[in-house]
Amino acid sequence: MDETGKELVLALYDYQEKSPREVTMKKGDILTLLNSTNKDSWKVEVKITVNGKTYERQGFVPAAYVKKL
Rank of each mutant, 00 (worst) to 15 (best):
G28L: 03
T37E: 14
P62A: 05
G52L: 04
G5S: 12
K68T: 06
L12Y: 02
L34Y: 03
A63I: 05
N35H: 06
Y55A: 05
S36V: 05
P62M: 05
S19Q: 06
K27Y: 04
E22D: 06
L69N: 01
L31W: 03
W42L: 02
E22S: 06
T24M: 04
K26I: 07
N38Y: 08
K27T: 05
Q16D: 13
N38R: 09
T54K: 07
F60Y: 14
M25D: 00
I30F: 05
K53I: 15
L34D: 00
T4Q: 13
K6H: 12
T4R: 12
L8F: 15
K43P: 00
R57H: 06
S41V: 14
L8G: 02
L33G: 00
T54R: 07
W42N: 00
W42S: 00
Y55V: 12
E45P: 00
P62Q: 05
Q58P: 02
E3L: 13
W42H: 00
S19A: 07
A64E: 11
Q16S: 11
G5V: 14
G5Q: 13
R57P: 00
V44T: 00
S41C: 15
A63H: 02
T49H: 10
V44Q: 00
Y65E: 01
Q16F: 14
E22Q: 06
G59A: 03
F60S: 03
R57G: 02
S36I: 05
N35T: 06
L31G: 03
D2S: 14
S36T: 09
K53R: 13
L8V: 07
L33S: 03
Y13R: 15
A64Q: 10
S19D: 11
Q58F: 06
D40T: 11
Y65R: 04
G59N: 00
V61K: 01
I48M: 10
Y65A: 11
F60D: 03
N35V: 07
V23L: 11
G59D: 00
R21S: 14
E3V: 13
T32G: 05
K26C: 11
K26F: 10
D14C: 08
K53L: 13
Y15P: 02
V44Y: 01
Y13E: 09
V23S: 02
E3Y: 13
D2F: 14
Q16P: 04
L12P: 02
D29K: 03
M25G: 01
K6Q: 11
W42Y: 05
K47Y: 10
N51T: 04
G28T: 02
D40P: 02
G28S: 02
L31M: 13
Y13S: 07
V9G: 09
K53M: 13
D29H: 04
G59V: 05
K6P: 13
K27M: 06
T49C: 15
T4L: 12
S19Y: 08
R21E: 15
D29V: 06
G5F: 13
I30R: 03
G5W: 12
N35S: 12
D14G: 04
G52W: 04
E56R: 15
L33W: 02
Y65C: 15
E45H: 07
Y13A: 10
L31K: 00
Y65P: 01
G5N: 12
K68V: 11
G52T: 03
K26L: 06
Y13L: 09
I30A: 01
T54E: 09
K27S: 05
D2T: 13
M1Y: 12
V9L: 11
A63C: 07
L8D: 01
E56I: 15
I48W: 12
K26N: 08
S41P: 01
K53Q: 12
Y65L: 14
K43E: 14
K67M: 14
Y15A: 01
Q58H: 07
E7F: 11
K43S: 05
I30W: 04
K6Y: 14
T4H: 14
N35Y: 06
T24Q: 04
V9E: 01
V66K: 02
N38A: 08
T24C: 07
K68E: 04
P20K: 09
S19F: 07
K39A: 13
G5D: 12
I48D: 04
E45S: 15
Y55G: 03
P20Q: 09
I48P: 00
E56W: 15
S41F: 15
N35M: 08
K53V: 14
G59H: 02
S41T: 11
Q16H: 12
N51P: 02
W42Q: 00
G28N: 05
K43D: 01
E56V: 15
I30E: 01
K39Y: 08
G52D: 06
P20W: 09
R21G: 15
V9M: 03
G59I: 05
L8H: 09
D14L: 06
Q58T: 11
F60N: 04
E56D: 10
M1R: 13
N35W: 06
V9P: 00
L34Q: 02
P62H: 04
T49W: 10
E56C: 15
Q58C: 08
N51Q: 09
S41K: 11
T32A: 08
A63Q: 04
E56T: 15
K68W: 07
E56L: 15
L8A: 05
L69W: 07
L31Y: 09
L69V: 10
M1T: 13
A63K: 06
Q58Y: 06
N38W: 06
D29N: 05
Y65H: 05
E22G: 15
L31S: 02
D14T: 05
A63T: 05
G59E: 01
K67Y: 09
T37L: 09
Y15W: 06
F60Q: 02
K47M: 10
N35D: 15
D40I: 12
T37G: 09
L69S: 02
K47N: 08
T54P: 07
T54W: 07
K43I: 14
T49Q: 10
G28F: 04
I48E: 07
D14H: 05
T49E: 10
E22F: 06
L33R: 01
D2N: 14
E7K: 09
T37M: 10
Y65Q: 04
